[in-house]
Design a protein around this nucleic acid. Structure first.
Lengths: 212, 212
DNA sequence: CAGAATAAAGTAATTAATTACTTTCTTTCC
DNA sequence: GGAAAGAAAGTAATTAATTACTTTATTCTG
């Protein structure tokens, strides 16, 4: 009953399977290579396929990137948002989101390179737009949670929510880029809580510490 | 006495002049194009030179990138550090540094793309190392100022300085990437003080507001 | 067996670098 | 100071390698 390991066993796989293998391979490869230098030959080789055969499953390279961007967008949104939705208190939701995002990146180290690589390109490519929309949705979620936190009295009411959203995303980026530079992806999850604690100090501010 | 406008007047320019023109052109081009797609032909055309002639002034493309990285590193370090050194109080120095950095990027919008593009590449290319060292030096400067601020009683003594340095760089990155995504470089300098104000709230924390 | 999947070979375009040769600038020497 | 000689900077064309994508023929699979 070849249900689970169908991917590795069968020699001839249908397009749907090949597509998902390809996306997985691209994300894997981005962990060790600049996306801009990723060739169709390298991708095909990674999934044990000839270069030409790749084009039976994707009409062109641009569409391939579009698929990858779509997968990343869906996955990151699902994981991060669901982490947030498990908490009633806004500050806890923000922290859960933060840690979920960093954890996701730690499990898929190629993704920052992938996203930055797309945003790098000027103009409005389809893949870039997907990433852009994902960031915009993310931003709105953060602002929404900050507003909720103000209502709940957990966040200073005089906070600049737009700036706080930028700083939130910047905190993640800073963390990730720092890890990318030093080549230590393993330190990511370890450092994440420290960064968030500092970040949250900017909007807790006040003197009231209910838990201590 | 052809001293000033030598660049535009002379048809045959010496290597030193051509090198600086090339660096300038590359940074200019990065503002509107992905560095990874920048060809020697495009660069040569920008400075009014044939493609082949470029190799009279640089032995190869890699060395060209190295020169560009070196220029960026020197310039950013000089401008940002000198801005910081004009203040005695650590918090003011940090703010001046922050604004100087953002201002520098606003004047050279291609630089983030350039630096991110280099950091994108895995391995240890010479150009990447220059960028890496620049960031490391920058990080140390920030940590040094935070320590000074603690001594001066301007910064909470229980602060996690390493995390604060990461968040500092992340704040700039977040700001810049946000602007890159939305395509609005003009909003950069406008938003910068708001971000820094929020950032600094994370280490001022306490209730004492000497100025209000 | 019929259709889908694959490998293998081919194409046209692009790119960094080289080459053969020309033009301009700089130095030398009378 | 001015011509002659040499160094430096320039062009235009070419090369070898690489790339995304196509075509053809073969092999697997329901």
């Amino acid at each position: 009953m070849p249900t689970i390991n169908e991917k590795t066993k069968r020699a001839y796989q249908n397009t749907k399977l090949r597509q998902s293998s390809t996306i997985e391979a691209v994300i894997q490869l981005c962990a060790e290579q600049d996306p801009a230098t990723l060739t169709t030959a390298r991708i095909a080789n990674e999934i044990g396929l000839s270069q030409g055969a790749l084009f039976k499953h994707f009409p062109n390279k641009s569409r391939l990137w579009e698929s990858v961007a779509g997968w990343v967008s869906g996955q990151i949104t699902r994981e991060v948002f669901s982490a947030a939705d498990q908490h009633q208190q806004a500050d806890q939701a923000l922290e859960a989101m933060f840690l979920a995002h960093v954890g996701f990146i730690a499990r898929h180290p190629g993704i920052p390179r992938l996203m930055l690589g797309e945003l790098q390109k000027p103009g409005n490519g389809p893949a870039k737009n997907i990433i852009r929309q994902t960031l915009a949705r993310y931003r709105k979620k953060v602002i929404g949670l900050l507003d909720l936190g103000i209502q709940q009295g957990l966040i200073t009411s005089d906070i600049d929510t737009e700036a706080a959203a930028v700083l939130y995303l910047g905190a993640i980026q800073g963390l990730v880029v720092q890890a990318m530079v030093s080549g230590e992806i393993n330190t990511l999850e370890q450092a994440a809580p420290r960064i968030f604690k500092l970040y949250s100090a900017s909007f807790r501010g006040m003197s009231d510490d209910p838990e201590k």
